[in-house]
Simulated assay, not measured.
Amino acid sequence: MDDYLALCEEEGRKPDVPLKGSFNVRPGRELHRRAMFYAKRRGLNLNTVVSDALRRYLDREDHAA
């Protein structure tokens, strides 16, 4: 942590603020409904479905770049 803070100071920038790990998503009614039924069919909660989908999307993007 000290190294990170020293680097930020050296580069003249503010350290990143830790994220709390949650955010609101507004997918619209139809996508929300589809995601809810998808989760229910698989015995998952909606948060797990959204987190898994976001992870897959970002992993695919990371490999494409």
Rank of each mutant, 00 (worst) to 15 (best):
L7F: 00
F37C: 09
A35K: 05
A65R: 09
R56D: 01
G28H: 08
P18L: 01
N24A: 13
T48F: 06
N24P: 11
F37P: 00
M36I: 12
A35S: 15
D2A: 11
R60H: 04
H63S: 04
D3N: 04
A53D: 11
D62Y: 02
E30Q: 08
H32T: 12
P27V: 02
H63F: 05
D16N: 06
E61R: 08
R42C: 06
A64G: 09
D52R: 03
K14T: 15
L31G: 03
L46E: 02
G28N: 10
R41C: 14
T48S: 11
A65L: 10
H32K: 13
M1K: 01
N24Q: 14
A53K: 00
D62N: 09
R55L: 10
K20V: 15
D2L: 15
D2S: 11
A35D: 07
L54V: 06
L19I: 14
G12R: 09
M36R: 11
R60Y: 00
V49G: 08
H32F: 13
L19C: 13
R13P: 05
K20I: 12
P15V: 09
R60L: 03
M1D: 00
S51A: 03
M36W: 12
N24Y: 04
P18V: 04
E9T: 00
D2I: 05
L31S: 10
M1F: 02
D52K: 03
V49R: 00
H32Y: 13
L46H: 02
G43A: 06
Y57W: 05
L19E: 13
V17C: 02
L44D: 07
D59F: 00
E11P: 00
D52Q: 05
A39F: 01
E10M: 08
A65H: 07
Y4N: 05
L58C: 02
D16E: 15
D59P: 00
F23N: 03
L54S: 00
L5R: 13
L19T: 12
Y4Q: 05
E61K: 04
A65S: 11
L7N: 07
L58M: 04
N47Y: 04
G21F: 09
R29N: 07
A65M: 13
R41Y: 06
R34T: 12
N45E: 12
M1P: 00
S51T: 14
Y4C: 04
R26A: 11
Y57G: 04
D2V: 04
R34D: 06
L44M: 04
